[in-house]
């Protein structure tokens, strides 16, 4: 099988082609860096995205604290992850890179704060 796609690993947006007979042997061409190979394989097997969002926080200076997954997570869990994130409430202080949710749904990926909010 063959699928053409655009790599989203960085702003370059390489047009890559994935060709495969079975899931264990996916060949990616057109990529300008190794990340293209990883992206091409994942997009065939289980498409993944980085998630960014905000969480309610009891800060005097800011209504919401920004958060981000430490890597890509399967698309299929994103809606549920967002709905869970939006129900959360955090207390200050929180530092940038603090882990907000560890090992999201056993993906090995964490949710971290991307901003420090002290008060």
């Amino acid at each position: 099988m063959k699928k053409e796609m655009i790599c989203i690993s960085c702003p370059m947006g390489c047009r890559i082609t994935a060709e495969w007979e079975n899931d264990n042997d996916i060949k990616v061409t057109g990529n300008k860096c190794p990340r293209g190979i990883v992206y091409g394989r994942e997009e065939i097997l289980s498409p993944r995205r980085v998630v960014t969002a905000t969480i309610d926080i009891n800060s005097s200076s800011l209504g919401r604290i920004p958060v981000m997954t430490t890597g890509t997570v399967p698309k299929g869990i994103i809606d549920s992850l967002l709905n869970r994130i939006y129900k959360m409430h955090l207390e200050t202080p929180i530092a940038r890179d603090d882990i907000i949710m560890k090992n999201i749904d056993d993906t090995g990926i964490d949710l971290i704060a991307t901003r420090t909010v002290t008060t």
């Binding site: 309610d56 919401r64 698309k75 994103i78 809606d79 939006y86």
Partner: peptide, 10 residues
Amino acid sequence: KIGDLEVNSY
């Protein structure tokens, strides 16, 4: 406000 709507994006 965020959280009022159910996310069903994908």
